[in-house]
């Protein structure tokens, strides 16, 4: 199992296009991938490959999330997703 945390920096948060990009990236990996929102009101961990669950976390700009993967490609999966979130999904300010 491998885990890491990252802060969402893009304006839309994990909604609309960024949410879909995130889920599609997650689906490229074999590992089970779970995520949750930290900061104050911690949520339960949800399946990061489910668009509906990801949307249901209501993650906004400035929220911190934790991504946990379990499987053969767990490290690559978490690193790729953290990198994607940290990049701000290419949303220019």
């Amino acid at each position: 199992m491998y885990a890491d945390q990252v802060v969402v920096i893009n304006k839309t948060g994990l909604h609309a296009r960024p949410a879909y990009e995130f889920v599609n990236m997650a689906k490229r990996f074999e590992s089970n991938i779970m995520m949750r929102r930290l900061d104050g009101s911690d949520t339960e961990a949800i399946n990061a490959k489910s668009i509906v669950f990801v949307l249901s976390l209501g993650i906004c700009e400035g929220d911190k999330i934790e991504i946990v993967a379990d499987g053969d490609d767990e490290k690559e999966a978490v690193e790729a997703l953290v990198k994607l979130v940290a990049s701000g999904f290419g949303e220019a300010e």
Binding site: Y20, V23, K27, I46, N47, K49, S50, I51, V52, F53
Partner: peptide, 8 residues
């Protein structure tokens, strides 16, 4: 995407 949702 919703139709393909793993969790659903």
């Amino acid at each position: 995407e919703i139709l393909d949702d793993e969790a659903i």
